[in-house]
Design a protein around this nucleic acid. Structure first.
Lengths: 187, 187
DNA sequence: CTACTATTAGTACCTAGTCTTAATAGCTTG
DNA sequence: CAAGCTATTAAGACTAGGTACTAATAGTAG
Protein backbone atom coordinates (compact mmCIF):
# COMPACT_ATOMS: atom_id res chain seq x y z
CA UNK A 1 0.00 0.00 0.00
CA UNK A 2 3.01 2.30 -0.30
CA UNK A 3 2.16 5.18 -2.59
CA UNK A 4 4.66 7.61 -3.95
CA UNK A 5 4.31 11.33 -3.68
CA UNK A 6 2.63 11.98 -7.00
CA UNK A 7 0.09 9.26 -6.46
CA UNK A 8 -0.66 10.33 -2.93
CA UNK A 9 -1.10 13.97 -3.89
CA UNK A 10 -3.50 13.07 -6.67
CA UNK A 11 -5.56 11.00 -4.26
CA UNK A 12 -5.36 13.74 -1.67
CA UNK A 13 -6.81 16.30 -4.05
CA UNK A 14 -9.60 13.91 -4.93
CA UNK A 15 -10.33 13.05 -1.30
CA UNK A 16 -10.54 16.65 -0.18
CA UNK A 17 -12.68 17.57 -3.14
CA UNK A 18 -15.13 14.85 -2.25
CA UNK A 19 -15.07 15.62 1.45
CA UNK A 20 -13.75 19.09 2.32
CA UNK A 21 -14.57 18.47 5.99
CA UNK A 22 -11.64 16.14 6.60
CA UNK A 23 -8.80 17.24 8.90
CA UNK A 24 -5.08 16.86 8.23
CA UNK A 25 -4.86 14.30 10.98
CA UNK A 26 -7.55 12.14 9.43
CA UNK A 27 -5.81 12.47 6.08
CA UNK A 28 -2.48 11.48 7.64
CA UNK A 29 -4.16 8.39 9.04
CA UNK A 30 -5.76 7.57 5.74
CA UNK A 31 -2.54 7.76 3.79
CA UNK A 32 -0.38 6.41 6.63
CA UNK A 33 1.97 9.37 6.54
CA UNK A 34 2.64 12.07 9.10
CA UNK A 35 0.54 15.17 9.53
CA UNK A 36 3.50 17.23 8.38
CA UNK A 37 3.60 15.42 5.07
CA UNK A 38 -0.07 16.15 4.52
CA UNK A 39 0.54 19.82 5.24
CA UNK A 40 3.47 19.89 2.89
CA UNK A 41 1.28 18.28 0.25
CA UNK A 42 -1.47 20.84 0.74
CA UNK A 43 1.07 23.61 0.51
CA UNK A 44 2.42 22.25 -2.77
CA UNK A 45 -1.07 21.74 -4.13
CA UNK A 46 -2.32 25.09 -2.83
CA UNK A 47 -5.16 23.46 -0.93
CA UNK A 48 -6.30 25.69 1.94
CA UNK A 49 -6.78 24.47 5.49
CA UNK A 50 -9.95 22.83 6.74
CA UNK A 51 -11.50 26.00 8.14
CA UNK A 52 -10.92 27.92 4.94
CA UNK A 53 -12.38 25.10 2.90
CA UNK A 54 -15.47 24.94 5.07
CA UNK A 55 -15.83 28.68 4.91
CA UNK A 56 -15.65 28.59 1.13
CA UNK A 57 -18.38 25.98 0.92
CA UNK A 58 -20.50 28.02 3.31
CA UNK A 59 -19.96 31.31 1.51
CA UNK A 60 -20.58 29.88 -1.92
CA UNK A 61 -24.33 29.82 -1.61
CA UNK A 62 -25.06 31.92 1.41
CA UNK A 63 -25.96 35.04 -0.52
CA UNK A 64 -28.24 33.13 -2.83
CA UNK A 65 -29.85 31.26 0.00
CA UNK A 66 -30.80 34.44 1.79
CA UNK A 67 -32.21 35.82 -1.42
CA UNK A 68 -33.93 32.48 -1.90
CA UNK A 69 -32.76 32.36 -5.47
CA UNK A 70 -32.25 28.92 -6.92
CA UNK A 71 -29.08 30.08 -8.65
CA UNK A 72 -27.28 26.91 -7.78
CA UNK A 73 -30.09 25.00 -9.41
CA UNK A 74 -29.72 26.74 -12.73
CA UNK A 75 -28.58 24.72 -15.71
CA UNK A 76 -25.60 26.49 -17.19
CA UNK A 77 -23.54 29.25 -15.66
CA UNK A 78 -25.07 32.62 -14.95
CA UNK A 79 -22.89 35.45 -16.14
CA UNK A 80 -25.30 38.35 -15.76
CA UNK A 81 -28.42 38.90 -13.72
CA UNK A 82 -30.73 41.87 -13.37
CA UNK A 83 -33.71 40.60 -11.41
CA UNK A 84 -37.14 41.03 -12.99
CA UNK A 85 -35.45 42.42 -16.05
CA UNK A 86 -32.83 40.32 -17.79
CA UNK A 87 -30.28 37.56 -17.37
CA UNK A 88 -27.63 35.72 -19.35
CA UNK A 89 -26.23 32.23 -18.92
CA UNK A 90 -23.82 30.04 -20.85
CA UNK A 91 -23.83 26.29 -21.38
CA UNK A 92 -21.00 24.37 -22.97
CA UNK A 93 -22.30 21.43 -24.92
CA UNK A 94 -20.40 18.30 -24.02
CA UNK A 95 -20.62 14.60 -24.75
CA UNK A 96 -23.34 14.01 -22.21
CA UNK A 97 -25.62 16.55 -23.87
CA UNK A 98 -25.62 15.15 -27.39
CA UNK A 99 -27.02 12.24 -29.35
CA UNK A 100 -24.28 9.70 -29.87
CA UNK A 101 -25.27 9.19 -33.48
CA UNK A 102 -24.70 12.70 -34.71
CA UNK A 103 -23.28 14.84 -31.88
CA UNK A 104 -26.34 17.09 -31.95
CA UNK A 105 -27.45 18.47 -28.59
CA UNK A 106 -30.68 17.04 -27.24
CA UNK A 107 -33.41 19.66 -27.22
CA UNK A 108 -34.24 19.29 -23.59
CA UNK A 109 -30.84 20.58 -22.56
CA UNK A 110 -31.38 23.82 -24.42
CA UNK A 111 -34.84 23.97 -22.95
CA UNK A 112 -33.48 23.32 -19.46
CA UNK A 113 -30.98 26.14 -19.76
CA UNK A 114 -33.64 28.56 -20.98
CA UNK A 115 -36.29 27.43 -18.53
CA UNK A 116 -34.08 27.58 -15.48
CA UNK A 117 -32.87 31.01 -16.53
CA UNK A 118 -36.48 32.17 -16.85
CA UNK A 119 -37.13 30.88 -13.33
CA UNK A 120 -34.03 32.53 -11.92
CA UNK A 121 -34.63 35.93 -13.44
CA UNK A 122 -37.89 36.24 -11.56
CA UNK A 123 -37.49 37.95 -8.23
CA UNK A 124 -39.81 35.69 -6.33
CA UNK A 125 -39.58 32.77 -3.99
CA UNK A 126 -41.84 30.62 -6.07
CA UNK A 127 -41.63 30.86 -9.83
CA UNK A 128 -42.99 28.08 -12.01
CA UNK A 129 -43.38 27.63 -15.71
CA UNK A 130 -47.01 27.68 -16.80
CA UNK A 131 -46.70 27.67 -20.59
CA UNK A 132 -43.95 27.83 -23.13
CA UNK A 133 -43.71 28.20 -26.85
CA UNK A 134 -40.36 27.21 -28.20
CA UNK A 135 -38.49 26.86 -31.48
CA UNK A 136 -35.23 25.16 -32.21
CA UNK A 137 -33.84 27.05 -35.17
CA UNK A 138 -30.46 25.43 -35.60
CA UNK A 139 -28.99 22.26 -34.18
CA UNK A 140 -26.18 22.73 -31.71
CA UNK A 141 -23.13 20.50 -31.86
CA UNK A 142 -20.81 19.10 -29.26
CA UNK A 143 -18.15 21.61 -28.31
CA UNK A 144 -20.30 24.65 -29.01
CA UNK A 145 -21.16 27.22 -26.38
CA UNK A 146 -24.76 28.27 -26.01
CA UNK A 147 -25.44 31.75 -24.66
CA UNK A 148 -29.00 32.19 -23.43
CA UNK A 149 -30.44 35.66 -22.94
CA UNK A 150 -33.62 36.10 -20.96
CA UNK A 151 -35.69 39.24 -21.05
CA UNK A 152 -38.73 39.94 -18.89
CA UNK A 153 -41.40 41.25 -21.27
CA UNK A 154 -44.26 41.95 -18.91
CA UNK A 155 -45.37 41.42 -15.34
CA UNK A 156 -49.07 40.97 -14.69
CA UNK A 157 -49.36 41.37 -10.96
CA UNK A 158 -53.06 40.63 -10.86
CA UNK A 159 -52.84 37.29 -12.57
CA UNK A 160 -49.47 36.55 -11.03
CA UNK A 161 -48.02 35.94 -14.46
CA UNK A 162 -44.74 37.08 -15.95
CA UNK A 163 -43.74 36.77 -19.58
CA UNK A 164 -40.11 35.96 -20.22
CA UNK A 165 -38.51 35.70 -23.63
CA UNK A 166 -35.38 33.61 -23.90
CA UNK A 167 -33.16 33.57 -26.97
CA UNK A 168 -30.14 31.32 -27.21
CA UNK A 169 -27.18 31.86 -29.48
CA UNK A 170 -24.09 30.10 -30.70
CA UNK A 171 -21.72 32.76 -31.99
CA UNK A 172 -24.48 35.32 -32.52
CA UNK A 173 -26.50 32.75 -34.47
CA UNK A 174 -29.91 32.04 -32.99
CA UNK A 175 -30.32 28.38 -32.11
CA UNK A 176 -33.30 28.50 -29.77
CA UNK A 177 -36.10 30.89 -28.94
CA UNK A 178 -38.78 30.49 -26.33
CA UNK A 179 -41.61 32.50 -24.84
CA UNK A 180 -42.23 31.49 -21.26
CA UNK A 181 -45.31 32.34 -19.30
CA UNK A 182 -44.24 32.08 -15.68
CA UNK A 183 -46.36 31.78 -12.62
CA UNK A 184 -45.28 33.63 -9.51
CA UNK A 185 -46.74 33.45 -6.04
CA UNK A 186 -46.00 36.95 -4.77
CA UNK A 187 -45.82 39.32 -7.68
CA UNK B 1 -27.89 53.95 22.58
CA UNK B 2 -27.82 51.87 25.74
CA UNK B 3 -29.75 48.66 25.23
CA UNK B 4 -30.73 46.37 28.02
CA UNK B 5 -29.96 42.70 28.05
CA UNK B 6 -33.19 41.44 26.57
CA UNK B 7 -33.07 43.93 23.73
CA UNK B 8 -29.45 43.23 22.97
CA UNK B 9 -29.93 39.49 22.94
CA UNK B 10 -32.86 39.75 20.56
CA UNK B 11 -30.79 41.89 18.22
CA UNK B 12 -27.87 39.54 18.61
CA UNK B 13 -29.91 36.55 17.50
CA UNK B 14 -31.15 38.50 14.52
CA UNK B 15 -27.69 39.74 13.58
CA UNK B 16 -26.11 36.30 13.70
CA UNK B 17 -28.96 34.79 11.76
CA UNK B 18 -28.46 37.34 9.03
CA UNK B 19 -24.71 37.04 9.03
CA UNK B 20 -23.38 33.88 10.66
CA UNK B 21 -19.84 34.85 9.63
CA UNK B 22 -19.46 37.54 12.29
CA UNK B 23 -16.98 37.05 15.14
CA UNK B 24 -17.62 37.73 18.82
CA UNK B 25 -15.21 40.63 18.70
CA UNK B 26 -17.10 42.27 15.85
CA UNK B 27 -20.33 41.71 17.72
CA UNK B 28 -18.87 43.25 20.87
CA UNK B 29 -17.91 46.28 18.84
CA UNK B 30 -21.31 46.50 17.26
CA UNK B 31 -23.18 46.42 20.58
CA UNK B 32 -20.48 48.35 22.45
CA UNK B 33 -20.14 45.68 25.11
CA UNK B 34 -17.24 43.43 25.96
CA UNK B 35 -16.47 40.18 24.20
CA UNK B 36 -17.28 38.32 27.40
CA UNK B 37 -20.78 39.71 27.42
CA UNK B 38 -21.32 38.51 23.87
CA UNK B 39 -20.08 35.07 24.84
CA UNK B 40 -22.35 35.01 27.85
CA UNK B 41 -25.23 36.02 25.60
CA UNK B 42 -24.47 33.29 23.11
CA UNK B 43 -24.26 30.79 25.94
CA UNK B 44 -27.66 31.84 27.25
CA UNK B 45 -29.16 31.80 23.78
CA UNK B 46 -27.46 28.53 22.82
CA UNK B 47 -25.87 30.09 19.76
CA UNK B 48 -22.79 28.12 18.74
CA UNK B 49 -19.44 29.70 18.00
CA UNK B 50 -18.48 31.14 14.62
CA UNK B 51 -16.76 28.01 13.36
CA UNK B 52 -19.68 25.80 14.23
CA UNK B 53 -22.07 28.19 12.57
CA UNK B 54 -20.00 28.29 9.39
CA UNK B 55 -19.75 24.53 9.42
CA UNK B 56 -23.52 24.22 9.67
CA UNK B 57 -24.04 26.49 6.70
CA UNK B 58 -21.40 24.57 4.76
CA UNK B 59 -22.89 21.19 5.55
CA UNK B 60 -26.30 22.31 4.49
CA UNK B 61 -24.98 23.57 1.16
CA UNK B 62 -22.85 20.54 0.60
CA UNK B 63 -25.79 18.18 0.81
CA UNK B 64 -27.83 20.21 -1.63
CA UNK B 65 -24.98 20.40 -4.06
CA UNK B 66 -24.56 16.68 -4.36
CA UNK B 67 -28.20 16.09 -5.01
CA UNK B 68 -28.59 18.67 -7.75
CA UNK B 69 -27.75 16.19 -10.47
CA UNK B 70 -27.89 17.18 -14.10
CA UNK B 71 -30.05 15.73 -16.82
CA UNK B 72 -29.16 12.33 -18.11
CA UNK B 73 -29.37 11.22 -21.65
CA UNK B 74 -32.83 9.74 -21.95
CA UNK B 75 -35.32 10.86 -19.39
CA UNK B 76 -37.89 8.41 -18.12
CA UNK B 77 -38.33 4.71 -18.68
CA UNK B 78 -40.11 3.65 -21.82
CA UNK B 79 -42.69 0.99 -21.04
CA UNK B 80 -44.60 0.85 -24.29
CA UNK B 81 -43.67 1.64 -27.83
CA UNK B 82 -45.45 1.48 -31.17
CA UNK B 83 -43.12 3.21 -33.61
CA UNK B 84 -44.56 6.13 -35.58
CA UNK B 85 -47.74 5.75 -33.62
CA UNK B 86 -47.61 5.94 -29.84
CA UNK B 87 -45.39 5.44 -26.80
CA UNK B 88 -45.54 5.58 -23.02
CA UNK B 89 -42.85 6.32 -20.46
CA UNK B 90 -42.75 6.78 -16.72
CA UNK B 91 -40.65 9.06 -14.56
CA UNK B 92 -40.50 8.89 -10.79
CA UNK B 93 -39.94 12.32 -9.32
CA UNK B 94 -37.15 12.19 -6.80
CA UNK B 95 -35.11 14.65 -4.76
CA UNK B 96 -32.86 15.55 -7.66
CA UNK B 97 -35.82 16.59 -9.82
CA UNK B 98 -37.39 19.10 -7.50
CA UNK B 99 -36.76 22.63 -6.24
CA UNK B 100 -35.40 22.24 -2.77
CA UNK B 101 -37.55 25.09 -1.57
CA UNK B 102 -40.93 23.57 -2.23
CA UNK B 103 -40.42 20.01 -3.53
CA UNK B 104 -42.06 20.89 -6.82
CA UNK B 105 -40.63 19.19 -9.88
CA UNK B 106 -38.68 21.49 -12.15
CA UNK B 107 -40.35 22.03 -15.48
CA UNK B 108 -37.46 20.95 -17.60
CA UNK B 109 -37.61 17.42 -16.26
CA UNK B 110 -41.20 17.03 -17.37
CA UNK B 111 -40.25 18.57 -20.67
CA UNK B 112 -37.26 16.28 -20.98
CA UNK B 113 -39.39 13.20 -20.43
CA UNK B 114 -41.91 14.33 -23.03
CA UNK B 115 -39.25 15.42 -25.48
CA UNK B 116 -37.29 12.18 -25.16
CA UNK B 117 -40.46 10.24 -25.76
CA UNK B 118 -41.34 12.32 -28.80
CA UNK B 119 -37.88 11.65 -30.23
CA UNK B 120 -38.06 7.95 -29.46
CA UNK B 121 -41.50 7.33 -30.96
CA UNK B 122 -40.28 8.46 -34.36
CA UNK B 123 -39.06 5.62 -36.51
CA UNK B 124 -36.04 7.42 -37.86
CA UNK B 125 -32.34 7.58 -37.24
CA UNK B 126 -32.38 11.30 -36.87
CA UNK B 127 -35.30 12.95 -35.14
CA UNK B 128 -34.98 16.45 -33.75
CA UNK B 129 -37.37 18.80 -32.08
CA UNK B 130 -38.18 21.81 -34.25
CA UNK B 131 -40.95 23.49 -32.27
CA UNK B 132 -42.96 22.79 -29.18
CA UNK B 133 -45.93 24.30 -27.46
CA UNK B 134 -46.26 23.21 -23.89
CA UNK B 135 -48.42 23.77 -20.84
CA UNK B 136 -47.81 22.80 -17.27
CA UNK B 137 -51.28 22.32 -15.83
CA UNK B 138 -50.48 21.09 -12.35
CA UNK B 139 -47.28 21.07 -10.34
CA UNK B 140 -45.79 17.67 -9.66
CA UNK B 141 -44.39 16.85 -6.25
CA UNK B 142 -41.52 14.73 -5.05
CA UNK B 143 -42.55 11.08 -4.82
CA UNK B 144 -45.12 11.25 -7.60
CA UNK B 145 -44.94 9.15 -10.76
CA UNK B 146 -45.38 10.89 -14.07
CA UNK B 147 -46.74 8.83 -16.96
CA UNK B 148 -46.16 10.42 -20.34
CA UNK B 149 -48.15 9.31 -23.36
CA UNK B 150 -47.04 10.26 -26.83
CA UNK B 151 -49.24 10.06 -29.89
CA UNK B 152 -48.13 10.71 -33.45
CA UNK B 153 -50.75 12.98 -34.97
CA UNK B 154 -49.48 13.43 -38.52
CA UNK B 155 -46.49 12.70 -40.69
CA UNK B 156 -45.68 15.12 -43.48
CA UNK B 157 -43.16 13.23 -45.55
CA UNK B 158 -42.54 16.07 -47.95
CA UNK B 159 -41.59 18.59 -45.37
CA UNK B 160 -39.98 15.94 -43.20
CA UNK B 161 -42.12 17.00 -40.26
CA UNK B 162 -43.99 14.89 -37.76
CA UNK B 163 -46.45 16.16 -35.19
CA UNK B 164 -46.40 14.42 -31.84
CA UNK B 165 -48.71 15.15 -28.96
CA UNK B 166 -47.46 14.26 -25.50
CA UNK B 167 -49.70 14.29 -22.44
CA UNK B 168 -48.34 13.53 -18.97
CA UNK B 169 -50.38 12.34 -16.05
CA UNK B 170 -50.08 11.77 -12.34
CA UNK B 171 -52.83 9.35 -11.35
CA UNK B 172 -54.93 10.14 -14.42
CA UNK B 173 -54.64 13.86 -13.70
CA UNK B 174 -53.07 15.85 -16.51
CA UNK B 175 -49.95 17.67 -15.35
CA UNK B 176 -48.31 18.48 -18.66
CA UNK B 177 -49.32 18.70 -22.28
CA UNK B 178 -47.14 19.43 -25.26
CA UNK B 179 -47.39 19.57 -29.03
CA UNK B 180 -44.07 18.75 -30.61
CA UNK B 181 -43.20 19.42 -34.21
CA UNK B 182 -40.39 17.04 -34.97
CA UNK B 183 -37.93 17.16 -37.79
CA UNK B 184 -36.88 13.88 -39.37
CA UNK B 185 -34.24 13.33 -42.01
CA UNK B 186 -35.54 10.23 -43.77
CA UNK B 187 -39.28 10.24 -43.44
C1' DC C 1 -26.67 46.86 54.38
C1' DT C 2 -27.11 42.85 51.85
C1' DA C 3 -28.48 40.20 47.86
C1' DC C 4 -28.71 39.85 43.27
C1' DT C 5 -28.02 40.82 38.29
C1' DA C 6 -25.25 42.36 34.63
C1' DT C 7 -20.97 43.20 33.03
C1' DT C 8 -16.12 42.85 32.62
C1' DA C 9 -11.46 40.82 33.28
C1' DG C 10 -8.17 37.33 33.38
C1' DT C 11 -6.31 32.74 33.05
C1' DA C 12 -5.76 28.10 31.33
C1' DC C 13 -6.86 25.28 27.65
C1' DC C 14 -8.50 23.70 22.92
C1' DT C 15 -8.44 22.83 17.72
C1' DA C 16 -6.56 23.05 13.55
C1' DG C 17 -3.93 24.98 11.74
C1' DT C 18 0.75 28.39 9.81
C1' DC C 19 5.63 29.19 9.39
C1' DT C 20 10.33 28.01 10.22
C1' DT C 21 14.29 25.27 11.25
C1' DA C 22 16.31 20.99 11.55
C1' DA C 23 17.12 16.12 11.43
C1' DT C 24 17.01 11.70 9.02
C1' DA C 25 16.58 8.04 5.39
C1' DG C 26 17.17 6.56 0.77
C1' DC C 27 18.86 7.32 -3.58
C1' DT C 28 21.76 8.93 -7.31
C1' DT C 29 25.63 10.79 -9.54
C1' DG C 30 30.18 12.36 -10.24
C1' DC D 1 32.74 6.72 -1.30
C1' DA D 2 31.29 11.29 -0.36
C1' DA D 3 28.24 14.97 -1.82
C1' DG D 4 23.82 16.33 -3.20
C1' DC D 5 19.08 15.82 -3.64
C1' DT D 6 14.28 14.44 -2.49
C1' DA D 7 10.92 12.96 0.65
C1' DT D 8 9.55 12.57 5.08
C1' DT D 9 9.22 13.56 9.86
C1' DA D 10 9.86 16.25 14.03
C1' DA D 11 9.93 20.21 17.10
C1' DG D 12 8.88 24.83 18.49
C1' DA D 13 6.76 29.30 18.27
C1' DC D 14 2.67 31.54 16.99
C1' DT D 15 -2.38 32.34 15.38
C1' DA D 16 -7.70 32.83 15.44
C1' DG D 17 -11.55 32.16 17.69
C1' DG D 18 -13.07 30.24 20.62
C1' DT D 19 -14.64 27.21 25.79
C1' DA D 20 -14.68 26.87 30.76
C1' DC D 21 -13.93 28.75 34.91
C1' DT D 22 -12.98 32.12 38.67
C1' DA D 23 -13.16 36.58 40.30
C1' DA D 24 -13.93 41.46 40.56
C1' DT D 25 -16.92 45.52 40.07
C1' DA D 26 -21.13 48.51 39.43
C1' DG D 27 -25.79 49.35 40.05
C1' DT D 28 -30.17 48.38 41.77
C1' DA D 29 -33.95 46.28 44.78
C1' DG D 30 -35.68 44.97 49.03
Amino acid sequence: MKRNKRERQALLTETIKENPFITDEELADKFTVSVQTIRLDRLELSIPELRERIKNVAEKNFEDEVRSLPLEEVIGEIIDMDLDNSAISILDIKKEHVFKRNQIARGHHLFAQANSLAVAVINDELALTAKANIRFTRSVLEGERVVAKAKVISIDEEKGRTLVEVTSFVNSEIVFKGDFEMYRSHA
